[in-house]
């Protein structure tokens, strides 16, 4: 990785070393991320690289580069932080910067939609179909 930390190894919690306590402040110049309503974006907020962002990858450095690169596929803020070993709030601040620069799109989940009965029913249905370790889904027993 550009900042000299070992590459992310998503093989489990133990594989993730402690993130530096000093870097976050430097990287974000001490800014604190807050959404338009003053609240910080939820950890599950989805982030996707734009074509512009991917085109500009070579021009981006360090954390910004890594964030855009890892968001070729949609990622949550938490996933970005974990995979790149960055603090969550650093990712929040940088994701907002990169969104403002047109290099990422940031999709804060609509809370009403998430809590809507139709969405909950779909999650329930999807989860019921998950087989247990013997291969038996929940809706067959």
């Amino acid at each position: 990785m550009a900042d000299g930390t070992p590459p992310p190894d998503p093989s489990g919690p133990d594989a993730v070393g402690p993130a530096s306590a000093v870097r976050p402040f430097l990287v974000t110049a001490g800014r604190v991320a807050a959404g338009d309503d003053g609240r910080s974006m939820p950890v599950e907020t989805q982030v996707v690289a734009t074509a512009e962002g991917l085109d500009a990858l070579d021009l981006l450095a360090f954390e910004r580069h890594d964030i855009v690169a890892v968001c070729r596929l949609p990622q949550s803020l938490a996933e970005i932080a974990a995979r790149l070993r960055l603090h969550l709030n650093v990712v929040r601040v940088l994701a907002e910067d990169l969104r403002d620069a047109g290099q990422l799109t940031v999709h804060v989940p609509d809370s009403d939609l998430v809590h809507d009965a139709s969405v909950l029913r779909r999650v329930i249905e999807g989860l019921r179909a998950v087989p247990d370790s013997r291969g038996v889904p929940s809706d067959t027993d």
Binding site: P10, G12, V16, A21, A78, A82, L88
Partner: peptide, 8 residues
């Protein structure tokens, strides 16, 4: 695999 993230 469960991921871990850290917040200061």
């Amino acid at each position: 695999e469960p991921l871990t993230t850290e917040a200061a």
